[in-house]
Amino acid sequence: MWTWFHRLASPPSFYRFADRLAPWLLGLGLLLLAVGCYGGLFIAPADYQQGDAFRVIYVHVPAAALSLFVYVLMAVAGAIALVWRMKLAECAVVAAAPIGASFTALALVTGMLWGKPTWGAYWVWDARLTSELVLLFLYLGVIGLNQAYSDARTAARACAWLALVGVVNVPIVHYSVQWWNSLHQGSTILSLEAVRDPKISSSMLWPLLLTLSGSFAFFFAVWLRRLQNEVVARERGANWVRDCVLQAPLAAVSNEQSGMTGPELDPSMQSRQGRQRHGEPRGAD
């Protein structure tokens, strides 16, 4: 088990692993989302209080759950990156941030669209809404920080620090509805009490569980793809990227133009030239 993880952490084997897994996750996620949305919009009954307005829940709750989950994931990956200096974990932090930010924005927007018909206001400055907005800024900070550095590794490690510090906000978002009197409702499904004693009728719950799991599958699929891109960009000088990613297009190009590094070259030569060609130019020390 442990050695399996160890092997997976090496960029090439991760790349191949993600390549195999991501399409399945994407397909599964889209399928679950489609069935869940259909169930939520057409099959589930209207709510006794809110009528059809409650159907926003099928987008809002998965988006909000993921906005918190992704940040925790970033913080865990950040801790791993900082402690064990693992390149894959560094990539994981930066790859997750834009997806998390999108889910957070989606949660905020759907929440506003839901708030107007039910509460009577798009926005109130209560604890849940404010802390979720802060979460969005934390995500934007990570994205901005990543782009501020020219060196990908320094950028990723700075982002890891920010993710670690910002994770303090996650429990505040989650428990804000318990700790403070808020206009926002309490947790319908994401609390221990709700697991013991469901707060939502099963005819309304199953589409929610479908869109929730579908969103997670969708997130993991997109995350794996972004991670692949990140890893390839970071490792662009390495042999395995040449072999398993760039091989086809590069071989075509080099055969047409000036016959540079072709597959017929001696392998050791090839690796050396590959590194020098694709690696960053050597700067001053």
Binding site: D151, R153, T154, E235, G279, E280, D285
Partner: peptide
């Protein structure tokens, strides 16, 4: 030793 992603 590497600087950033470049192995020096």
């Amino acid at each position: 030793v590497s600087r950033g992603d470049r192995t020096v």
